[in-house]
Design a protein around this nucleic acid. Structure first.
Lengths: 239, 239
DNA sequence: CTTGCATGGTTATCATACAACATCGGTTTT
DNA sequence: AAAACCGATGTTGTATGATAACCATGCAAG
């Protein structure tokens, strides 16, 4: 019995849908650690897909460390997500609350990174930051080039912390945030904002160059606060 | 024609082997960004497995953002590792500098999490934290149970921030740090340290219960500083 | 009580078939 | 001549059935 998919369903692969569906069950606690998943047959039936698709989904979840499976027994929810990889569910990010949480996490990392950068930046770091800023100045506000260089500037700041993991994590989170913003199309466009944003960046750069950690923190905080309002995100006022 | 596997091959799934094999090709530059992968048929043939297995491998690589594929055309190496997943190389962590960087990143997250927790914790959060602390008190210092509950306590703190990503990232990093410590076998054992550690935790808990963000930050910082020295990590004094 | 075996259930893999889509060349239409 | 149509071919996406390896359980024989 062949399943005819509606044209509507031209989206991600079925295995992706199944995987995130199971993922959600785990996240919401309907499948608890140690629990055995339904058999591949059952899953195929309940989702209305072939066993093959289910297997692709399970292969994915297994690689993410969310489940483990043993031949002859079944698949089980991993006790501790002893993941070798960290994943972020893009679907969930559509939720405003989830997006806000990720934005907050990024903020924490950015602010602390700025402080560390102020203490540890080398001459090369400063050059890279100035370079990125100059490129951003030349790019039209809101263009792809602009966004790319914006990210690049923040990357140079992160790199100045001399902490490779800081770079890796910050870029990962920032990338997700940026994607989500683009997907929602909430980006405002205005030439005025270009000058504002550039000014914020300049203030960060100056603080880092001066080696003033506190000012760097504050400048970064101000920048993110500005970015948040530009994206239409109501920010919590932390006393 | 059925493939008879040697008993030797009782290891990871074939799809895993295929996936890491392709992954290696990419990492070593033999497959460059934008390049088209061989067709599933060809891959199946060259690896000597069924197309099904190849598909599971590809599904995995796709979920990791390393490749993308389009029906009717083929699979291609992703231009930028626009990763949906974040991985940490365990090997690299054996390097002291890498470990220190990850430790620092964890510290930043923990300290900020403690501050947020102090502002947002609910009654349930406090109960969970007290619970974890009580369990830790009952466990022998350095035992598996102790380590587990230690992590659990920090998780409850993270959870009190009401930021799911904070929990996810912090636990991911902490898990890696813990693994690395266990692998290096640098853990000191002493009954005295049990009391010290418990005291540090108690101080954190008290601050969060009191809603004192600054004190919570400081308490967490002190705790991590203590943990660092217990592991034999020279910490930078950030005046 | 222990050992051995039969049995059913589950995953891992293979093989084949078909549907959906892309590309390309040739043909027809404009 | 240029554009639109059409079909052949190759590729991915999915479905289906079959087989091998493996696990757990229960039961009979010792």
């Amino acid at each position: 019995m062949t399943l005819k998919l509606d044209k509507v369903n031209r989206g991600p692969h079925l295995s992706t849908l199944v995987a995130s569906s199971i993922s959600r069950e785990i996240a919401q606690g309907r499948l608890r650690p140690g629990d055995q998943l339904p058999t591949e047959q059952q899953l195929a039936q309940t989702f209305g897909v072939s066993r093959n698709v289910v297997r692709e989904a399970i292969a994915r979840l297994r690689s993410e460390g969310r489940i483990w499976s043993q031949q002859g027994r079944g698949a089980f929810v991993a006790d501790e997500p002893n993941a070798t990889v960290l994943t972020i569910d893009f679907e969930a990010l559509q939720q405003a609350s989830a997006f806000q949480s990720l934005f907050e996490l990024r903020g924490i990392l950015e602010v602390q990174a700025a402080a560390l950068a102020a203490k540890r930046r080398t001459g090369d770091d400063l050059l890279a930051m100035k370079d990125a800023l100059a490129t951003m100045r030349a790019a039209p506000y809101g263009s792809v080039m602009w966004l790319k260089t914006d990210l690049e500037f923040h990357k140079t700041v992160a790199a100045a912390t001399d902490n490779a993991y800081m770079v890796q994590f910050l870029m990962f989170v920032s990338e997700k945030v940026r994607e989500s913003i683009l997907a929602s199309g909430n980006q405002q466009r205005s030439e005025d904002l270009a000058a504002v944003t550039l000014g914020e960046h300049q203030r960060i750069l100056d603080a880092i160059e001066a080696g003033d950690a506190d000012e760097a923190q504050e400048a970064m905080r101000a920048h993110l606060h500005g970015a948040a309002s530009r994206v239409g995100l109501a920010e919590e006022q932390s006393e």
